[in-house]
């Protein structure tokens, strides 16, 4: 939110410097330098066990770094808990969707709004103090639901949704926080092809609203289609960065993914 960083579009929105995380002697994440460009879609790819999700957890405060520094808009955020980061404009989704089953879809959405007066204990006891804000939040939630084509599920329990709908709801709910950085952990996993296309369109539209997107994905077609920049991780390290086209022809990346299967076209394999 600092003035100088907001002024230039070129300043990175998120940076990670010398970030290290070990589990029982194993270096799960060892990232020397990473800069995420503002209002772009950055894909984070890599074979299984490359440390992508752990890195995601470190960036969003769900796990703590052993050493290193992470910044958001120039502000050091290392060690901050997730709820503070969400308040600063960095929101995430999860690989295994976390919809709140026994809350209705609209309640899931309304939960996403930040700084609600009615979320304070004493104000909650006085409905008059929060009903107006609640109506505004609800209107905003309905608008997003409409955009995500979930209006028909509005008053159903979120637990009754299909896997794809859950992915949509989770992303919609994340947008309720008005984030500057949206971090999506495998947004396409388990989504049927019909929904996948609309989900892709929704993601593609985010930078235009002034939101930066970072996502972890296995499906190379998706990566090729929507990302502006691709970061490749293997064994906890970043082994390559570049535009989708550059990455596609990068030998180190092909090696990391395919091992012995040289020569195959990367986009032809479903990486898992």
């Amino acid at each position: 939110m600092t003035a100088d960083s907001a002024a230039t579009d070129n300043a990175p929105v998120v940076t990670a410097t010398n970030v290290v995380k070990t589990f029982g002697g194993l270096r799960a994440v060892d990232v020397e330098k990473l800069e995420i460009r503002r209002n772009k879609i950055t894909a984070l790819i890599g074979p299984n066990g490359a440390g992508k999700t752990t890195f995601f957890n470190l960036l969003t405060g769900f796990d703590q770094v052993d050493s290193g520094e992470i910044t958001l808009d120039g502000q050091i955020i290392t060690g901050r808990p997730p709820h503070q980061l969400a308040g600063m404009g960095m929101v995430r989704t999860f690989q295994l969707t976390k919809v709140l089953s026994k809350l209705s879809t609209i309640e899931n959405m309304k939960l996403g709004a930040l700084n609600q007066r009615g979320e304070k204990f004493w104000s909650a006891l006085v409905p008059g103090s929060w009903t107006k804000q609640e109506r505004e939040v609800e209107a905003r939630a309905d608008a997003i639901l409409k955009r995500f084509n979930l209006t028909h599920m509005r008053d159903e329990y979120a637990g009754t949704m299909s896997g794809g709908q859950r992915k949509l709801l989770e992303m919609a709910r994340a947008l309720m926080t008005e984030p500057r950085v949206v971090m999506l952990d495998e947004p396409m996993a388990g989504v049927n092809p019909a929904l996948a296309q609309s989900l892709l369109e929704l993601i593609k539209a985010l930078p235009a609203e002034g939101r930066t997107v970072i996502f972890v994905e296995h499906n190379m077609d998706v990566v090729q289609e929507i990302s502006d920049w691709v970061v490749v991780m293997a064994e906890g390290r970043i082994i390559a960065e570049g535009t989708p086209a550059e990455i596609k022809s990068n030998k180190a990346v092909v090696d990391a993914y395919l091992g012995a299967h040289h020569g195959a076209d990367l986009s032809q394999v479903e990486l898992s």
């Binding site: 969003t60 769900f62 808990p81 997730p82 709820h83 503070q84 969400a86 308040g87 929101v91 995430r92 989704t93 999860f94 976390k98 919809v99 709140l100 089953s101 026994k102 809350l103 939960l111 996403g112 930040l114 979320e119 709910r173 994340a174 309720m176 926080t177």
Partner: peptide, 13 residues
Amino acid sequence: REDEDAARALGKN
């Protein structure tokens, strides 16, 4: 109650 991590990710302490 449903999912603590989801709530934390949405800015709830």
